[in-house]
């Protein structure tokens, strides 16, 4: 459901303004520019503030309050503290593991299902598609999901962080409609050459769908990285907690993270909290440019056009 940036630029190539559009007044232009700057700042300021605070010493934080934009005496104490091998380091490893395994499993299953459902003439595929799509209409809810996970013996296991959200019906629909849009002649000619359905998937469909699969992969990865509710619901053992759960108890809940040995001067509490936030944010900020490049290309357009 991204916007087709190419169509946009095609409609008004470059900065050309159609002849019938009056040029904007100076006031209007200034107001618009100001508005855009404010909106941009509203998004960027908190992020910069979090990074700034994580690098600050206690004195700077006390003077500035809340978020420090420019740390006057930058120091890495907070990061040294959280990477010393305590709760945060462990949670980071859990989160990385869950994100990698979960994303791999989700992409494999989604690709298989989307391809399997991409040809309407396949026996039963319409009914199976309905089974998947109907799940967008209702949500079984917490109690029902909890009892299911428990009765499957997944309670307090890492699998409980992955399996209950393995396939997103939305991603499935996006990928399926992408597969259906591939030129049928290519698939036919592969079949004439003797390729079976699986070979066609691996040799023809997948190489043509790199962009769509990249988007799905990134969407899954981001959602596994951010997910905290499954962990809250299905984990008993706090040693298994992923990073968002650590954020919940130590940053939002305000428990102290200090594990510094006696005699050491601990890093400021707020700086440590913000350092954990930065650790949680960095992977998203790294992945985002790729995501953004794909969805402005309009890869997802087909899904919502309907």
């Amino acid at each position: 459901m991204a916007l087709p940036a190419e169509t946009m630029s095609a409609r008004r190539s470059g900065n050309a303004r159609p002849a019938w559009v009056e040029s904007p007044s100076r006031v209007g232009r200034a107001a618009k520019a100001l508005l855009l700057v404010l909106i941009t700042l509203a998004v960027i300021y908190p992020i910069v503030g979090v990074v700034g605070t994580s690098l600050s010493d206690q004195a700077t934080i006390s003077v500035n309050g809340g978020l420090v934009l420019i740390p006057t005496h930058p120091q890495l104490d907070a990061y040294r503290e959280i990477f010393a091998g305590g709760v945060v380091s462990r949670a980071l490893l859990v989160s990385l593991g869950i994100t990698l395994c979960g994303t791999a499993a989700s992409v494999l299953v989604t690709v298989g299902m989307a391809y399997g459902l991409s040809r309407p003439e396949v026996t039963g595929s319409r009914v199976i598609l309905m089974v998947a799509l109907l799940t967008m209409l209702f949500n079984p809810g917490i109690i029902a999901n909890f009892l299911t996970v428990k009765s499957l013996g997944l309670y307090n296991s890492f699998a409980a962080l992955v399996l209950p959200s393995l396939v997103s019906a939305f991603n499935l629909v996006v990928l399926r409609s992408f597969f259906m849009g591939l030129p049928g002649e290519l698939l036919d000619s592969a079949r004439v050459d003797g390729a079976g359905d699986f070979r066609i998937l691996v040799r023809v469909v997948l190489p043509l769908s790199k962009a769509a699969i990249a988007v799905i992969t990134l969407f899954y990865a981001v959602s596994y990285w951010n997910a905290f509710f499954n962990a809250l619901l299905y984990l008993q053992d706090s040693a298994k907690n992923p990073l968002p759960m650590v954020l919940r108890s130590f940053v939002i809940g305000g428990q102290s993270l200090h594990e510094a040995a006696a005699g050491e001067i601990p890093a400021p509490q707020q700086a440590v909290q913000m350092a954990v936030l930065v650790v949680a944010l960095v992977p998203i900020l790294c992945v985002y440019p790729f995501l953004q490049r794909y969805f402005t290309k309009g890869v997802l357009t087909g899904a919502v056009k309907g």
């Binding site: 494999l108 298989g112 399997g116 026996t123 799940t135 029902a144 009892l147 209950p164 019906a169 359905d197």
Partner: peptide
């Protein structure tokens, strides 16, 4: 269609187990 159906199977199982079966809960 066996290959296509086999590829669909894991996803279908997911939806049945984690979206429909919980309704009995």
């Amino acid at each position: 269609d066996r290959v296509m159906l086999l590829l669909t199977l894991p996803g279908l199982l997911y939806f049945l187990v984690f979206h429909y079966a919980p309704l009995f809960g």
